[in-house]
Simulated assay, not measured.
Amino acid sequence: MKKKVILFSIVSIGLLAIVINYRTPFLQPQSGPWSIGFGLSEKFPDKMLFEKNILYPLEKLKQHNDSTAFLADPFFIKEKDTFYLFFEHKKYAPNADIALLTSVDGVNYQYKGTVLKEKFHLSYPQVFKYKNDYYMLPEAKRSGHVLLYKAANFPYGWKVCDTLIKNRELKDPTIYLSDTLNVMVASDDHLNMYMFEADSLHGKWRAHKKAKVMMGTEARAGGRFFADEKGLLLPVQNSTQGYGYGLSIYRFNFKGDNYTVKRELPFFLKRNEKIKEFNAGMHQLDIQKVDGKYYFVYDGNRLESDVKDLNFRGPIKWNYVDLKNWFYQQQCEYFN
């Protein structure tokens, strides 16, 4: 009897390990430099055809500054005849700054240097226009707050103009503003995404009554909200095979003071073996309607080598939290 129990335990543990490894491998690739890509579509793309799009790789940026080690998290805004593309730019460890590329055709970009530098790490430079002024909501987690910046002389002169959330370290705050809805999502270090709401950009931001949106390996925003006739779409990072592996699109629908969330386009971006710059993963997308067409920018990174690192703790943790998230979503749907 004892031998049967031992054998059953070994088989059960083995099967569990196979299931966990299948979904989130214990052996994970070593990722290297990041690059930015961009493209144009007549309609909202069902999928990305990266082979037809244009890249701005790390090597091109290095022509301007040999110390460049990183470019990622692209966000853009088009004003008059110019595309302004802001991105995370790491020159010297440990912190990154915000830098700028500009283009008059959305294809040929020119490097304009650093536009925002702090004593703490900056990334995710979500830039937007609100009531004729230009704002940036970057990730400033290491400052301990969610900080809002305003441009004194766009695209330069960025200064803190407001603290939207105080004394809370949050990643990748992503905002949506309209006449009827003002919401923001952001994530913590424990794989949880939270929602906040306010009466306006400069109003008092507070936790939504259903504050926790999701948790697990897809619980961190990967780009700005996009509004269509059905509601809001949000790119969300996927880290099942390591940080930066892919990105899914989620649908948010708001009704009164409640909302629902649905995974609408799984793995809209992910590792692409055909393009060396993106053969490790992709994790950022900014898509907007510009002059009647859909213009988008995204990022991805390449494999550092064929060597893979052994990681036991991560896959076990991520599968456990994803299972919790599944039960949480089922409960939310039941009560809604």
Rank of each mutant, 00 (worst) to 15 (best):
E88N: 01
K62W: 01
P57Y: 05
W34Q: 08
T82G: 00
L49G: 13
E59A: 11
D81K: 10
F75M: 02
K78I: 03
L49T: 15
L71T: 14
L85D: 04
D66V: 15
N95I: 14
I77L: 13
D46I: 11
W34I: 08
T82D: 00
G37D: 05
D73G: 04
H64G: 08
S35Q: 01
E59W: 12
S35W: 01
F50G: 11
L40E: 15
A72R: 13
A69C: 04
S67C: 06
L40F: 06
F38L: 08
M48E: 10
F70A: 04
I77M: 10
I54P: 07
Y84K: 03
T68M: 07
D73T: 02
K47D: 14
E88I: 04
F38N: 12
E42T: 15
H64N: 09
W34F: 11
E79P: 00
D73Y: 04
A69V: 14
S67F: 05
N53A: 13
N95G: 02
Y84M: 04
A93F: 10
K60L: 12
K47I: 13
A69E: 11
K43N: 15
I77H: 08
P57T: 09
G37C: 03
K91V: 11
T68I: 11
K80P: 02
N65T: 09
F86N: 02
I77N: 05
D46C: 08
P33N: 14
P74W: 02
I54E: 15
P45H: 00
E42F: 08
L55F: 10
T82C: 03
L61T: 00
A93D: 08
E88Q: 06
P45N: 08
E88S: 04
S41D: 14
L85A: 06
S35I: 01
Q63Y: 09
D73W: 01
P94W: 05
L40Q: 15
M48P: 04
G32M: 01
D81H: 08
L55P: 04
L55Y: 06
L71V: 15
T68F: 01
A72V: 06
F83M: 05
Q63V: 11
F86H: 02
A72M: 11
K91I: 12
D46G: 10
H89W: 14
K91Q: 10
E42S: 14
L71S: 15
E79G: 05
P57E: 07
F87L: 08
N53S: 13
Y56W: 07
F50P: 03
Y92C: 08
L58T: 08
E88K: 03
F86T: 00
H64A: 09
Q63I: 13
P33K: 13
P74Q: 04
L71M: 14
A72N: 00
N53K: 10
N95L: 07
K90G: 03
K91H: 03
E51H: 13
A69M: 12
D81P: 00
Y84S: 00
G32L: 00
Y84F: 06
L61N: 08
N95S: 10
N65Q: 02
I54Q: 15
T68W: 00
A69D: 10
L55Q: 14
S67Q: 07
F50W: 12
Y56D: 07
T82I: 07
F86Q: 00
L58Y: 05
E42G: 14
Q63L: 12
F75R: 05
